[in-house]
Design a protein around this nucleic acid. Structure first.
Length: 766
RNA sequence: UCGGGGAUCGUCUAAUGGCAGGACUGGAGACUCUGAAUCUCCCUAUCUAGGUUCGAAUCCUAGUCCCCGAACCA
């Protein structure tokens, strides 16, 4: 697995002393896994592998109404097929129901949870909305004893569904809707697929998931972006209970979206239930089971996950990338076989009727160790209907009347005659082979560009071939909210060719064995329907074809102009400027500071605004101003350097004093140190609170007595060491200046001005 | 309307103040007993506007656009 923002976090955690990592893949057993899950599986298991940690497979089975054992089986099968192993770490959320129940009691004891006894509708109503505060439930202040008694009775089955819930006591006016007293437990008299009727109350996701992680010792709980808001609640629950080691943390990445398909369980389910596809493992579906049946390999899927990468951008991956991974993987692993999808008879008129010649063809032309087999050649042959043209276009290399092509591994043939039916369709060809061209080589060395695959009547068998294509005919079937995605189904996503021909050797191959049908594509013997008497092959993916134009040659149709309601209204957030103004309104000290900054010290209004929104900063600046350094310099440095530090950790928490900051800025004003040197001094000063003059000495960044001599010397050395780059620069690669500047500045440790260095560099580079 | 995220080639993804890189797609060519594969070359990007800096995709400010969140779902 390559680096990404999560591996960076893990690297940092490990450096800080975390002994090992544990991740988990936590599907709910209520549907089949799809390629989006594959990305997550590769991430979680891949991380565990990379860092020598572990990855749990955990079924998040907290909702008995939706879940079923049949899904837990299929999910395990899919994960294993993808190539991952959870060892002994197979868990179910339901394994921890007892513990969770006990934790809920602890929350009640701490006064952090209460039993509410209102209807769903009322609870929803009270929650408020975005920008609209919620209101407290009348049951919010029940006593601990009351809550404990009620919750115990809930567990004992004294109440019917929907009469009571356990809620966290947080804040009904919280800006994050999830924090408005979220539900922790609800009553559900339902039989659970594992715990049967042991329970009639079940924990909600936000309460259960973080506890599952904590109980199992998960260190990095990785989920998709839509759970970002849930993180706050995740942390709340774990902190409220406390005492975790390791304490799990949640991180979110962007889930996979693909062109020309849909990924949500709901939409997939609709396709399955409406019989628009043939079950969850229909080869056109992006489900793992479907892709397996389609003939895609786990290696290709893992390679795809790797190529797509892990980030936080909301993106849609070009399905061509998946197709590339599939082709690349199959290219190296499949033997080459002959098959004709739409046969067109070709009679070799100069070949004796009874004569059959066994032609030896290698399974792979590039690898003799792959072996070979014999294919019968005779008078009555078939070629691919597409390989003949009545009226050949420019550049046509295939067959046409009067043209010569090679029948792969056999003979050169010239078409002499064509028969058509009443409608003008070609129904048969006649031709003559050059009998001296056995093996396919021209006796006189003449160039024959076209090479066709072929089969003879006695050397072939009928087979069913299923040609799959993209499920939807547009790139973003979900883009337009006014059009049902079903409307965009590609009518040609499945074409069954029952009169295809395969060479005899393919009759006995195993189900799920994969082949390249030469010049056609990659095919797999169907996992279920294929057998010696009923050969059935699925086309995994066609070969790349730079001759015939794909139907979607041009740019894929991207999302139509999104006219959804949510897109139209511009979401204006509370602006930082407003927050600062509000701070000054609340605190007259800040307002006064603002005025002083502008009137007494000549700050620009923008500078004054930025520096007077927070007491720690405003006071710090006032102190810096007392150092006697020019106010303009202080303002500029404060805005551009100090605020960043302040954001990382408040100035009030730092050992550095305002006076020291003022002095440092003064050192640059007086040209004692360069600005870049001052930045490194500032970093150190902010950390340790030591005096700037001291640090300048210690870090050795004071300006040299004769800077240009020092600079010249350094640059001469540089140009010698980087002769290549120097030559490239002189040849015109001016963007290398940044490289030279970087090297020079590093070497000079800030003893010189950037400006001087640049001038000298320019002079010497010519 | 409130809160949380995100904007880099057509697509996905790097660059953590110092040569905007890689992959897919697309284009051109070479080779070819698969119009495949392989090889070579090429096209194309830092959301906008200001600022700081010798130097900004990266830091500061303002703006624009996109995504997610108000199930007793996960």
């Amino acid at each position: 697995m390559s680096d990404n923002f999560i591996t960076e976090i893990i690297d940092a955690n490990l450096r800080e002393g975390l002994p090992t990592i544990a991740t988990r893949f936590p599907p709910e057993p209520n549907g089949f896994l799809h390629i989006g899950h594959a990305k997550s599986i590769c991430l979680n298991f891949g991380l565990a592998k990379r860092y020598g940690g572990r990855c749990h497979l955990r079924f998040d089975d907290t909702n008995p109404l939706k879940e079923d054992t049949k899904y837990v089986d299929s999910i395990q099968q899919d994960v294993r097929w993808l190539g991952f192993d959870w060892g002994e770490h197979l868990y179910f959320a339901s394994d921890w129901f007892d513990k969770m129940y006990a934790f809920a009691h602890r929350l009640i004891d701490a006064g952090l949870a209460y039993v509410d006894s209102q209807s769903v509708e009322v609870v929803r109503e009270q929650r408020g909305g975005f920008g609209k505060d919620g209101v407290d439930s009348p049951f919010r202040n029940r006593t601990v004893a009351e809550n404990k008694a009620l919750f115990t009775q809930m567990r004992e089955g004294k109440f019917s569904d929907g009469t009571h819930v356990l809620r966290a006591k947080i804040d009904m006016t919280h800006p994050n809707m999830l924090m408005r007293d979220p539900l922790l437990y609800r009553i559900r008299h339902a039989t659970h697929h594992r715990t049967a009727d042991d329970w009639c109350i079940y924990p909600m996701y936000d309460f259960a998931h973080c506890l599952e992680d904590a109980i199992e010792g998960i260190t990095h709980s990785i989920c998709t972006l839509e759970f970002e808001s849930n993180r706050q609640l995740y942390d709340w629950v774990l902190d409220a209970i406390g005492g975790w080691a390791p304490r799990p943390r949640q991180y979110e990445f962007a889930r996979l979206k693909l062109d020309y398909t849909v990924m949500s369980k709901r939409k997939l389910l609709r396709l399955v239930e409406n019989n628009q596809v043939d079950g969850w493992d229909d080869p056109r579906l992006p489900t793992i089971a479907g892709m397996r049946r389609r003939g895609v390999t786990p290696e290709a899927l893992r390679q795809f996950a790797e190529l797509v990468g892990i980030a936080k951008n909301n993106t849609t991956v070009d399905i061509g990338k998946l197709e590339y991974c599939i082709r690349q993987d199959l290219e190296t692993r499949t033997p080459r076989a002959l098959a004709i999808i739409e046969p067109l008879p070709l009679e070799i008129t100069n070949w004796p009727k009874e004569r059959i010649e066994q032609i030896t063809l290698p399974w792979r032309a590039d690898d003799p160790s792959a072996g070979s087999r014999q294919v019968a050649f005779g008078r009555n042959l078939f070629i691919e209907a597409d390989d003949f043209a009545l009226d050949p276009p420019k550049g046509w290399r295939r067959l046409s009347v009067g043209r010569e092509v090679r029948l792969m591994g056999a003979y050169l043939v010239t078409c002499t005659d064509v028969t058509t039916d009443a409608e003008g369709n070609v129904i048969g060809l006649k031709g003559q082979v050059d009998l001296k061209s056995q093996g396919g080589a021209a006796p006189d060395g003449r160039k024959v560009k076209g090479t066709l695959h072929w089969l003879s009547a006695p050397g072939s068998e009928r087979a069913e071939v299923r040609l799959f294509d993209r499920l939807f005919s547009v790139a973003s079937p979900e883009a337009d909210p006014d059009v049902d995605f079903i409307e965009h189904l590609n009518p040609d996503s499945l074409i069954v060719q029952s009169k295809a021909l395969i060479e005899k050797a393919l009759l006995t191959v195993d189900s799920e064995s994969r082949w390249q049908f030469i010049r056609q594509g990659y095919f797999v013997a169907d996992r279920y329907d294929h057998g010696p008497d009923t050969p059935v092959f699925n086309r995994v993916i066609g070969l790349r074809d730079s001759w015939s134009q794909r139907p979607d040659q041009g740019r894929p149709e991207r999302a139509k102009a999104s006219t959804s309601k949510s897109a139209k209204k511009s979401m204006t957030k509370r602006k930082p400027a407003d927050i600062r103004a509000a701070a000054r309104q609340q605190d007259s000290g800040l307002a006064l500071a603002y005025n002083r900054f502008v009137q007494e010290h000549g700050f620009t209004e923008e500078q004054a605004d930025l520096l007077s929104a927070d007491r720690a900063i405003a006071d710090f600046i006032e102190e810096a101003l007392s150092s006697g350094t020019a106010a303009a310099s202080i303002a500029s440095w404060a805005v551009n350097q100090l605020l960043v530090l302040h954001r990382q950790s408040s100035m009030s928490q730092r050992p550095m004093r305002g006076k020291q900051f003022g002095e440092l800025v003064g050192l640059t004003d007086s040209n004692t140190i360069s600005k870049s040197a001052a930045k490194s001094v500032l970093a150190e000063m902010a950390r340790t609170g030591r005096d700037p003059t001291l640090l300048v000495d210690e870090l050795g960044v004071g300006k040299a007595a004769d800077p240009s001599a020092l600079v010249g010397e350094a640059i001469d050395g540089l140009l010698l060491e980087y002769a290549d780059e120097t030559a490239r620069y002189r040849a015109g690669e001016r963007q290398l200046m940044g490289f030279f500047m970087g090297q020079a500045m590093r070497r000079l440790k800030g003893k010189a001005d950037g400006q001087v260095v640049r001038t000298e560099l320019l002079a010497r580079l010519g």
